[in-house]
Design a protein around this nucleic acid. Structure first.
Length: 512
RNA sequence: GCGGCAGUAGUCUAGCUUGGUUAUGACACGAGCUUGCCAAGCUCGCGACGCGGGUUCGAAUCCCGCCUGCCGCACCA
């Protein structure tokens, strides 16, 4: 119980202060769905904004926005219809459930993939396949479809699914996108949006959702030229890798290496993959996740998705859930483009001007969940000191940037405080006004949701147009002229100046 | 999905074994007073038995179903 104390406290805070809570609560709730409250929505948007800075602004990738509902043929081509629908069977005695294909392979050595349900039933009976846990009799085979199925339009009832990944929207648009990129390789396309997976039994709160936000990038490149133009900038970055070969031998051993060495020693398949591993690490650190709790785990061949020939999961260690996958980097090869070429009969190749030949692009896919790092961030930001509990969020991520308080609710201070508030709002600051309870309580309320700075209007404000600015982490204050406040706050929020240089230091009462 | 345990205001919680006045307390929140910089104090206020059914004169309490959560199994491409 003591083990997950931080998780319980941070989730209590998250619910109480409007970050996240279970969806559909007044109707009893539905497992696997969470709502983002006012502060949660702000924080989530700031995480997305940072992701855009990395991938859209700096990598120069194109962002698109395609539908969440996808017609069946797209997902047949992508392999999701075959790989998401698992024939399952349950033991009548001990109630264990198995994938039929796995169970049959294990007991008879025969692959029965592609059989109909009836054929599988017959096969299981003929070969006397039993429960591998208790040897019990097996029940009837049933389908478990991990995609949400729906109907498009009335009448024809064309089958559609809620997308299990945003990536397909990008592959479908490949021809238009490569024209937009004017034939230059490599180029990248991103999409941020909801993805849907009908989990059998979602637990672990916000870590395993049935509807979640993903941010995916598809990097298209010539397989004979898997280089990143700015690889040298990333070459020296240290990576902590847990290789598949070590996992198979049950070894917890991590490989510490630079990006460059990882490629040279063929630990990572190519330069692009290694580059995006490093970029992922930088992104997570930039969110405020400590370097020490980040590692990359290579998926073993059995764990990999059908489309991937090499996958690395970026994992963050948490108190409550252990190592949590927050991003997956998959080498999708030409799987998706060739499948869509085959199923749609469209030519998905691209003409390379410098190589004077047609190229079927390969794809490296950095794919991020947004909800999971959101949780990791809350857990790792939560600080519980003696009398103080607060979120030490990075300033640029804090949902509310500035609290504005009148020291007293009289003597013209509230009016002055409102003036300051409006001045900050009009300059684009996310501010919150609070005049309830003692000044200490208001600081505590602001600290709890990670507000980095609070300004207080006091007697001196009325006399000389200065006010105090308080730093969340140090709880120390400086006195600043009102006219300089926006500039000072902007510099502080961008980490351009240290707090001590923001203004004239204010002595704490207890110190004087 | 299976088995075990659980669900009381915004949050935490007493009451449940042995059915019976107006469902306990704390914190939080709102209004007012107070307060001259770090969750102080005073007054007042808001606010709950997860949902549905059954047993009973009477159900937060006992029984059943559902939902949700926790633990174990399975699943997590």
């Amino acid at each position: 119980m003591a083990v997950a104390k931080k998780h319980e406290e941070v989730m209590e805070l998250a619910k109480r202060r409007g970050f996240i809570w279970p969806s559909f609560e007044i109707y009893g709730g539905v497992a696997g769905f969470y709502d983002f409250g006012p502060l949660g929505a702000l924080l989530k948007n700031k995480i997305i904004q940072k992701w855009r800075e990395f991938y859209v602004v700096r990598e120069g990738f194109f962002e698109i926005d395609s539908p969440s509902i996808v017609p069946e043929e797209v997902l047949r081509a992508s392999g999701h219809v075959d790989h998401f629908v698992d024939a399952m069977v349950e033991c009548q005695k001990c109630r264990s459930a198995f994938r039929v294909v796995d169970l049959v392979l294990e007991q008879t050595g025969k692959g029965i993939e592609g059989m109909s349900k009836e054929e599988m039933d017959r096969f299981v009976k003929e070969h006397k396949v039993r429960c591998s846990d208790c040897g019990g009799e097996l029940g009837k085979i049933f389908d478990f479809n991990a995609m949400f199925r729906t109907a498009i339009g009335p009448g024809s009832q064309r089958v559609g699914y809620l997308r299990p990944e945003t990536a397909q929207g990008i592959f479908i648009d490949f021809k238009r996108l490569q024209r937009y990129a004017r034939g230059k390789l490599p180029f990248g396309v991103v999409q941020i949006g909801k993805g849907y997976r009908n989990e059998i039994s979602p637990r672990q709160g916000i870590i395993r959702l049935r509807e979640f936000t993903m941010a995916e990038a598809e990097v298209f490149f010539d397989p004979e030229d898997p280089h990143h133009p700015r690889f040298s900038e990333m070459a020296g970055e240290q990576l902590r890798l847990w290789r598949a070969c070590d996992q198979i031998k049950d070894r917890e051993q991590l490989t510490e290496t630079t990006v460059e060495q990882a490629v040279e020693r063929k630990v990572v398949c190519n330069e692009l993959m290694a580059y995006y591993l490093a970029l992922t690490k930088r992104f997570l650190i930039d969110l405020g996740i400590p370097n020490g709790v980040i590692r990359f785990r290579e998926q073993t061949p059995g764990q990999r998705a059908h489309y991937s020939s090499e996958t690395w999961d970026a994992e963050v260690s948490t108190e409550r859930f252990g190592w949590v996958e927050v991003a997956g980097l998959a080498y999708r090869t030409d799987y998706d483009l060739s499948r869509h070429a085959q199923f749609s009969k469209e030519d998905m190749t691209i003409f390379s001007a410098d190589k004077k030949r047609k190229v079927l692009c390969h794809v490296v896919e950095p794919s991020y969940g947004i909800d999971r790092p959101f949780y990791c961030l809350l857990e790792h930001s939560y600080v519980s000191e003696k009398e103080r509990k607060y979120l030490r969020l990075k300033k640029e991520l804090a949902p509310i940037e500035v609290g504005v308080f009148p020291l007293l609710n009289r003597a013209g201070m509230p009016e002055k405080a409102r003036e300051v508030l409006e001045g900050l709002k009009s300059r684009g600051f996310m501010v919150e006004y609070d005049d309830a309870g003692s000044i200490g309580r208001r600081y505590a309320r602001a600290d709890e949701v990670g507000t980095p700075y609070c300004v207080t209007i006091d007697h001196r404000t009325l006399e000389e147009d200065t006010l105090t600015v308080r730093d969340r982490d140090a709880t120390s204050q400086v006195r600043v002229k009102i006219e300089e406040l926006p500039r000072v706050l902007r510099s502080l929020l961008c980490d351009e100046i240290p707090f001590s240089e923001a203004g004239e230091p204010v002595k704490k009462r207890s110190e004087s």
